[in-house]
Design a protein around this nucleic acid. Structure first.
Lengths: 204, 204, 204, 204
DNA sequence: TGCTAATCGAGACGGTACGTCAAGTCTTAAG
DNA sequence: CTTAAGACTTGACGTACCGTCTCGATTAGCA
């Protein structure tokens, strides 16, 4: 067994690899990006990459993860106040060339590669969802949202529709407006008055 | 000019290529599927494939498109009656190895390839959305759904969340149950009673 | 069997094929010349070529054979007078792109294909050698050449060295000068004076 | 600068490639021999071949060159003594199935492929010619050959006529006898006595 | 201070698949 | 029944990367 002997891994190489990966990701996209190109760009031997990562997915997941900035959970005192910040944060991330590229990459990779999907989910998505969930729970406790509303499902709807729109209808309105509409319709519901009354009665 | 001269394209080859593509898609998946394997399986020269399609995406898109069955728009007289059929149709498609493969492929390709996204959207998605929209419009005219509900956005939410769940949470509940929950929460809305009352007043 | 029924072979196609073959032979060379290019250049279907020739060699052999012009045996009264004409005829043939191409082709094919070598020898080479031999025999009878000189061997030496030089030293002097030097050295011999004297004595 | 960095070229691969090339050359001939077949036979990737050679010609030239045994320049003290050895060496090479096959191949390739001709010339032919030239120069200094005899041209004549005969008259006498006759006629010359006298006078 | 062992950049290794090209065969409509 | 056109199967081409494997040259910490 080898505990610590030998030359230690080069931190400089670590960083160069991640940076080169992100650069190429933005330049040529995931599919057209070869390990050899990354190695060359990073000024690193292929071996040095393969010693760290067993697959392109793993490498890319780590590269993207390295971008993760700490996310503060907003607490303005009102649902829409908090949502405003959540929405603006999301929009800031996504409404840029690299942002869309990155998102497309994640969805693309995850959809054809369940392992990546899981890694990405636990490492990245989960944290953001927990932040969103906290905001929703607070809204619940304030009485702004139904007690028995399924928080997880709400997040699915907001995130899912956003991704969907970005993939299939990329030229339409800005992210911020779209998200606002999404949450609005979710809050109000689309059922007619009678049904709403029914619901109210059922509650009472 | 070449209007009709020369040996015509072989219809048999057309079909053999598409069938081999679908078979391999289900067997080894999109990434591991090589053009050479398709040609070999179809008993066809590579040239014959390249004469028809310039890329794997194009070929696969056509293969999937060839699967498209005609979709009848249900009209049972009630919203949930119609939805039951819509949901079951969707579930039948998606809840199979090939179905999930295919969906993953489409999302994967579309997210990293805007051209494909557009082609697929106009050729395929649009038709299904129009069917869904019709069901929603009928529900509106029956008073089961709010007059001013944004039909397009509803479809985004239902489709988007479904795709999202399939990609990132593939092991959970069946498609049918998930969709039912989605539509349910959308109908009722998550806003609290007061807000619902507000909404009613605003309408009045 | 059908002797004459149906549409007759097109004589125009015959000629167009041969001409296109010769053109391309001169332009791109034997190896880089494709049947498809010949067909296209001749305005003819590939089938039409394959109906007439079973191989590229056969086609090219026929094309070259079609060029063969009748050769008159010179008789100027002196060895070097005759040789002048022989040499100039040879040079005229060989010192052109097509000529060198053709020669290369013949040697290439003949050296790897004894059947072709034999056919070509009897159909073509023999006639030229007989003309050359006649010139040499006349020189003998005039006393310009040794009585017991081996005419066949002389022709071998002159032809062989010419071919050899064209293949391996193609960029040097013109054919005419080279041949003149060849024949000159052959006439004089390279043996030193003593040996020449010895030879003279042996003769006497 | 890259003097020694990276994994060194495999000598084993070098040899395997050359051997496979020679084997296939003898078995199927130059034209029908594919790089892929060579790679497969040698147990080597195609890349490994293309890393070493940019063309089939280059590879084949090297393979043939590898057969070259060291040629000692004979020095027996007399022209015919040296020539005996030169002739016997040549005959030994050519008078075998592989020898003729190889020679045919070389001529065939060289005549239709100037690049090969040049490579082969500088790598192989030149050395043998230099050996032959040395023998001739020594004969000159011994007075057995004319001072002003064109050594290069003599070699052309001897080599050229031999190749010529092997291609076009393959069934005749053995190589050894033919070469002896060639050199003999060259030594003596074919010009008549008067011309020989003229030559002597010109010299005096 | 010198030894040991893992790391480094570099690049060759045996392979797979790519997309292109030409080969020779087959099939059509037109003559 | 031949023609021109062009699609067919086959198979080699040369290129790009894959993931693995040497190399000689650095680096640490342990002795």
């Amino acid at each position: 067994m080898s505990t610590s002997s030998g030359r230690p891994r080069s931190i400089h190489a670590d960083q160069a690899i991640l940076q080169a990966t992100l650069d190429l990701l933005a330049e040529v996209g995931y599919e057209s990006m070869s390990i050899e190109a990354i190695a060359s760009r990073a000024g690193v031997g292929k071996t040095t990459i393969y010693r760290r990562y067993t697959s392109k997915e793993e490498l890319v997941a780590d590269a993207i993860e390295s971008l993760r900035n700490d996310l503060a959970i907003p607490d303005t005192g009102s649902f829409w106040g908090d949502m405003d910040i959540v929405i603006k944060n999301a929009a800031k991330k996504i409404d840029s060339p690299l942002g869309r590229q990155t998102l497309a990459l994640i969805i693309s990779t995850a959809s054809s590669n369940p392992q990546f999907a899981e890694v990405y989910w636990t490492k990245y998505t989960k944290l953001r969802r927990e932040a969103f969930a906290k905001v929703l729970e607070r809204a619940k406790s304030r009485g702004e949202i139904n007690d028995n509303a399924d928080v997880d499902l709400i997040i699915d709807l907001v995130s899912g529709s956003l991704y969907y729109a970005l993939i299939f209808k990329p030229t339409t309105e800005p992210v911020e407006a779209y998200m606002r509409r999404t949450i609005d319709i979710l809050m109000k519901g689309v059922g007619s008055g009678e049904m709403a009354s029914l619901r109210e009665k059922g509650k009472g």
